[in-house]
Every structure is written in structure tokens, then in C-alpha cells.
Write a protein that binds this DNA or RNA. Sequence first.
DNA 1: CGGCATCCGAGTAGATACTG
DNA 2: CAGTATCTACTCGGATGCCG
Lengths: 152, 152
Amino acid sequence: MEEVSKSELGYKIETVTDNHKVKVAEKIKKMFGHIDPRKEEYCPIRDVMALASDKWSVLIILYLGYFPVLRFNKLKKYVYGISSKILSERLKVLEADGYLFRTMYPEVPIRVEYKLTDFGHSYLLKLLDLTEWVTQYSDIIIENRKKFKLNK
Amino acid sequence: MEEVSKSELGYKIETVTDNHKVKVAEKIKKMFGHIDPRKEEYCPIRDVMALASDKWSVLIILYLGYFPVLRFNKLKKYVYGISSKILSERLKVLEADGYLFRTMYPEVPIRVEYKLTDFGHSYLLKLLDLTEWVTQYSDIIIENRKKFKLNK
DNA sequence: CGGCATCCGAGTAGATACTG
DNA sequence: CAGTATCTACTCGGATGCCG
């Protein structure tokens, strides 16, 4: 292992050993090493993950992990910038895939509540690890971008 | 905790306790609880993560975790369906953000190699957890989709 | 070989208006 | 309140061709 990445990018991150890398490669092989690139086979990463890891869906799931229950317009406020159209689209997809519940109360005016399923909570655990990593290192990434631009 | 999700969706997933959920909520609060939805503040999830978690980038990073070094056209073969244009775009962004190295050998014909930085390997660890989860439960998600369609 | 330039079509998303 | 409908703008990505 070429020591820490300090020499590489000017900061210190958690060390990833060669042994780690080998294990990671094995896991990846298990995941889709059997997929033949020449045939267009079914691939969960392409089919399933793209949906639940897009910009809006991530924010929706995170806010539903923050607040146990949210109504449509509350959610729209938190996920600022999203339109009604896109929000309802994403919610429908996330509901279909099993990440969240939609409960409608036929009052006047109507009330609709969204909350994560246990399946959604399970997904959130993994997603959160990733977003925490991203948040933790976002300053570094911004720095990297600047340096890269300068070298161009 | 309302027991397992068996009753909920017809299968068993790892249990997420109420205690878990509270801790998760706290983590999320730390991450972006301070962001005011009314102002359009800087948010790492929107700015940084969207880039590295898009469909193509995920596949690129995974394949570079599988094979320590890959040349442009090899990568293009593995990430089947991607065009040269998109691949070089993504590679440039991922290089700029610090996930990977690009090494050019000015031979004839030219040779260019891509490999993950240690920073990229660190990201891959988290990403892999997520993709493994998705792979593990993709059948369930496909099932959920079918059920959902039938109920419409 | 590893791209970039150009063109172009399709899908996506925003704005706005409207409804049960 | 929680959406849907419609229209438009725009981005994304695919195809092709060219070049160092």
C-alpha cells in the first residue's frame, strides 16, 4: 500500500490497505463479475439503484428519516426547489419500489402522509453512511475541483 | 418497534429498531438539519453526491475497484452502453473531484490509464455497502413494483 | 487509441393553471 | 391540500466524423 493519501492529495483520509482493496474487488466480482458486458443483461445497479440514488430521491428519503411522517407540502418545503410534479412522480416510484408508505385521509381538505417502510429504513442506513462520507469530505472535493481547474 | 417488516411487505429484512431510527434522525440532523429550506444554501448532498452517485459514475467506480487499472476502451467495454462522450465527461468530473487518477503515456498509439485514488477507494467502501444492499434486495424491489402495478 | 466537435432527437424538468 | 394537465425550455445523451 502506498502509505496514506497525504502525499497524493494533500490531506489525510482513512487508510485503505491493499488487503482491503482485494476484498473489495472480490465483493464487486460477486456482485456483477458474472455479467457479460457484451450482452445487455439485467443489472440491479442500473435498474434499481439509479432510481433510489438520484438527487431528489435521496433528499426525500433523508427527510423522511429525519421526520417520521411528512405531508406532501411539508416535504415539498424541505426538499426546496422541487416542483409538485417531480415530487409526486418520485414519491410514486419510491412507494412502488417499497421504500415508503402513502396514507390518504379523505378529509376536507384532503390529507396525505408519507413515511418510510422498514425496508426504506434499511436502505436509509446504507444511504446515510454514504451521505455522511460525502458531507465529511465535501470540502476536500470542492478543493480538488479548484485545483483541477487551475491546472487546466 | 412494530416487529419485523414481514407483516408489512411479505418478506423479512434486517430489523431496524426504534432506537436505531432515533440515532439515524440525529445523524441526519447533524448533516443538514441546520440548512434553512427557505434559503437556497449550499448542500453537499445536492452539489457533491449527485455527481458521484449517478448511474454511470457508480459503474465506473465499481469497475475501477474491480480492476486496479483500466484503459479508456476497456472501461467503455465494461460499462456497456456508455458512449465515448459521456464516458470521457464522467471521467473528467471524477478526476476533478479526486476520485481517480488519469495517466497518459504519449506512445503511438496513445495509452491512457485510469485508477482510483485512495480517496476514491475510501468512497468505494461506502458505495459498495449500498450497491450490495441493492443487489441483495433487488428481487424484492422488482416484486414490489409488480404488486404495486397490480393494485392500480 | 483516446478522445473532442458537432448535430440532433428524446426525455426531463420547470412554470403555470386548474381541480376533487 | 395534494396533486394533475399542459406547454415549453432545456439538458442529456446518442450518432457520426475527425484528429493528434
